[in-house]
């Protein structure tokens, strides 16, 4: 059963002439990992703000259509309660640090303090999350003095520590090196295995293709495609709409053009290698 339902959603920011989201309809199920991809300024962050209830409760503007989260109409939902159910990691880590805590340890603990988690559990959870995100060496540092990449990891840790059922994650690796990016995806994969619902906006399509269950392609405020990763990434016409494709899919396309056909379009490196091995037998 769908957890989040959007029906003909159109949203225009205050004072904006054009809508940021146009006629969006889709359903998101619990326990699935959705990768949200698409060109820059296409409406992905606005989509995240909508899923988290910041639209229409924080960003006023004009919202048309119907949307429900767990059966409740978004306009009538209590955002304070929603904040305990949906964790939101922003695109910009510099704005996600509270600025009122003296150490990273306290910064990660803040969300749990607000949720009324007992102190002993908070301390245990902060240690576990810090080890998971590999930021143990930052715990005693001042969050306001961290670099962009460090802040991104701390912001990520702070939200996943709250252990909500749903995570909306907007470009969590924009300031990270390849190693840091890989480890963030591994954590997201662990969350997925804990049956958490994940909606991840990300440009690193090779990683998204590897971990996500479904893809939602957004461009110019519209949902251009939605479905199984293989199904969406088989449609190369999306390249003309600014959608990046995984290296594996591009390689298979190039080889197909040279007459080297694949039974399916591979979307991950391992799938590609497997198919090449089978084809060359």
């Amino acid at each position: 059963m769908a957890f989040i339902k959007l029906k003909n959603i159109t949203y225009t920011y205050p004072l904006a002439k054009e809508p940021a989201l146009r006629n969006m309809s889709c359903e998101l199920e619990r326990g699935k990992f959705y990768g949200v991809i698409g060109e820059n300024a296409g409406g992905k962050t606005t989509f995240c703000n909508l899923l988290r209830g910041l639209i229409p409760h924080f960003y006023r503007g004009e919202l048309e259509g119907e949307m429900t989260i767990d059966g409740q109409e978004i306009r009538n939902i209590d955002v304070d309660i929603l904040s305990t159910q949906i964790g939101y990691i922003f695109q910009n880590p510099f704005t996600q640090i509270s600025g009122v805590k003296k150490t990273v340890f306290e910064e990660i603990a803040l969300g749990m303090e607000n949720l009324g988690v007992p102190k002993e559990e908070i301390i245990q959870q902060v240690i576990e999350i810090a080890e998971l995100v590999k930021i143990e060496d930052l715990l005693q540092k001042d969050p306001n003095q961290l670099s962009g990449g460090q802040r991104q990891k701390v912001a990520f840790a702070s939200i996943i520590a709250m252990d909500t059922d749903v995570f909306v994650i907007d470009e969590p690796t924009s300031q990270l090196d390849p190693q840091g990016t890989e480890s963030i995806f591994e954590i997201i994969d662990k969350l997925k295995k804990q049956a958490k619902t994940i909606i991840l906006v990300e440009h690193k399509i090779d990683l998204v293709a590897e971990y996500a269950d479904e893809l939602i392609v957004i461009g110019q405020g519209e949902i251009l495609a939605k479905g199984d990763v293989h199904q969406v990434l088989s449609d190369f016409s999306l390249q003309t709409r600014g959608v990046m494709f995984p290296q594996a899919a591009l390689l298979s396309k190039a080889l197909s053009e040279k007459g080297f056909d694949f039974p399916n379009i591979p979307v991950t490196k391992s799938e590609c290698i497997q198919m090449l091995k089978e084809r060359m037998r």
Binding site: R52, D78, V79, D80, I81, S83, T84, G87, Y88, I89, F90, Q96, S98, E106, A109, L110, G111, M112, E113, N114, L115, G116, V117, P118, K119, I122, I123, S158, I159, M162
Partner: peptide, 13 residues
């Protein structure tokens, strides 16, 4: 995002 206004009694480190 940190559930600041969550309708529960806050705890303190």
């Amino acid at each position: 995002a940190r559930a600041f206004s969550a309708p529960v009694k806050h705890t303190y480190l």
